[in-house]
Design a protein around this nucleic acid. Structure first.
Length: 422
DNA sequence: TCTGGGGTCCTAGGACCC
DNA sequence: TCTGGGGTCCTAGGACCC
């Protein structure tokens, strides 16, 4: 019997918040918000040591920290955004990507926890290992999401994949205390949508013939790949649901949205997606960026900017070296106080992971930007990566080095205050 | 009270090569 | 005098995702 292609999408439920609740079970049911960035002064254990010096407070005691000790949104200052909010917090209208200051107005009593990526990475690895033990063909989609190819896994065909999904879901919860939602469908596109249909701790099984009844009523925005811009453009054409989109002709979509995106929209609306589950991939670029506590002036804050720039270069270099990559396209990113972003990059004739190299070329890139406003963000990026021990990394490409003789075009606008400072 | 950080992929124009 | 076509690489910006 021919195997039916069965692809699963697994999505951890409220991942960051759930991990925090494992550490701080006393916060269960309370409005909790995670985000805001730097907040080391609120280290809970040191506060407990100050409050109860007679007890030796360690990470084993986190669950004993009284709720009153946790910091609240009220009183927060800074420009961070919220990464996750518990359902209790969402009831106040607080949501992810919202500025923390805005959230503080909506729900001042909500507890604010700083993000703890080490913890999230630990649990991420844990659940991915569990899945890989059961079904080996897994595609990483970030810290809390994966695709799994069920097609050839023993039992992966039973009930359209329901039995295997149950097993995976149950095993993850047994071993980590975390819950997840799984959708199983003929392809990644539909699996991703299916996993959203029955949250939290749910399983949804979708067959090709369910597209009309279960997918077409959904908003176009539910398609992974249709964002706010595409949605607005669709709505301008009175296309709201995926069914509306599916009713359009392929040719019309290609005319209106471009050949490639239009054709993709058509396929997506009809539930067509042939992308394989990709188990291995190489990074294309690595970057570090930071938003300043307050906007910085290119001249007045020259020293501070220079230090931040150097640190970012060192961080990227360390990231590259730790992971064993080198790159030859070095770039910078700036965001001005009006939120406008610019990037500049330059490709050099050799691969590098050296902080001084990166800083030197990054500095040249910065000089090409017309600094007419205060800055809110500075970033450094290294692209065109290859493995540090690969053949290309060792051999400069003579054929291409001729291109490097071309000078990058100068800024088109008149100079105000040039960043000769870096 | 505006809007984090780390990524990928696509487009489009120009340079350059054959 | 006018003016090819295909292909690759580089660069800048933007959409989108987690």
């Amino acid at each position: 019997m021919a195997l039916l292609r069965r692809i699963a999408h697994l999505d951890m439920d409220a991942f960051y918040a759930s991990v925090e609740l494992l550490r701080y079970p006393q916060l269960k049911g309370l409005p909790v918000v995670i985000g805001g960035g730097r907040r080391r002064e609120d280290d809970l254990l040191s506060r407990m040591r100050a409050l109860e010096p007679q007890r030796e407070w360690t990470t084993a005691d986190l669950a004993d920290i009284p709720i009153e000790v946790f910091p609240r949104l009220k009183g927060y200052t800074g420009r961070g955004v919220i990464t996750t909010a518990t359902y209790a917090a969402r009831a106040f209208g607080v949501g992810s990507a919202m500025g923390v200051m805005k959230a503080a107005k909506l729900c001042p009593e909500a507890i604010l926890l700083p993000v703890d990526f080490d913890q999230y990475r630990f649990y991420s690895r844990a659940f991915k290992d569990i899945v890989a033990d059961i079904a080996p063909v897994v595609e990483d989609r970030g810290v809390d999401e994966i695709y799994i190819d069920f097609t050839e896994v023993p039992g992966g065909q039973r009930d359209g994949g329901k039995a295997l999904a149950r097993l995976i879901q149950k095993t993850i919860t047994e071993h980590t205390g975390l819950t997840c939602s799984i959708g199983v469908a003929p392809n990644k596109l539909l699996a991703k949508m299916a996993s959203e249909l029955n949250k939290p701790n749910g399983i949804s099984i979708l067959y090709a013939q369910d597209v009309e009844s279960k997918i077409w009523p959904l908003s176009c925005r539910k398609i992974n790949g249709i964002g706010p811009k595409a949605e607005a453009k669709l709505q301008a054409q009175d296309i709201h649901t995926i069914g509306d989109l599916a009713a359009k002709e392929r040719g019309w979509l290609m005319q209106y949205f471009g050949k490639s995106y239009g054709a993709w929209l058509f396929d997506a609306a009809h539930g067509v997606d042939e992308r394989p589950v990709v188990t291995e991939s190489e990074p294309v670029s690595m970057s570090r960026e930071t938003t300043f506590d307050k906007d910085l002036h290119v001249v007045n804050d020259r020293a501070a900017l220079g230090e931040i720039f150097t640190r970012l270069c060192q961080q990227v270099a360390a990231d590259l070296q730790r992971k064993g990559y080198v790159g030859k396209t070095i770039g910078i990113k700036l965001r001005f106080d009006n939120f406008q972003s610019v990037t500049r990059d330059q490709t050099i004739d050799h691969y590098t992971a050296d902080a001084a190299d990166i800083r030197k070329i990054g500095g040249l890139c910065l000089k090409r930007v017309d600094m007419k406003r205060r800055l809110r963000l500075l970033g450094v990026r290294v692209g065109a990566l290859v493995k540090a021990d690969s053949q290309e990394a060792l051999t400069p490409d003579a054929a291409k080095s001729v291109l490097l003789l071309r000078e990058p075009s100068p800024p088109t606008e008149p100079h105000h205050e040039q960043a000769d400072l870096f």
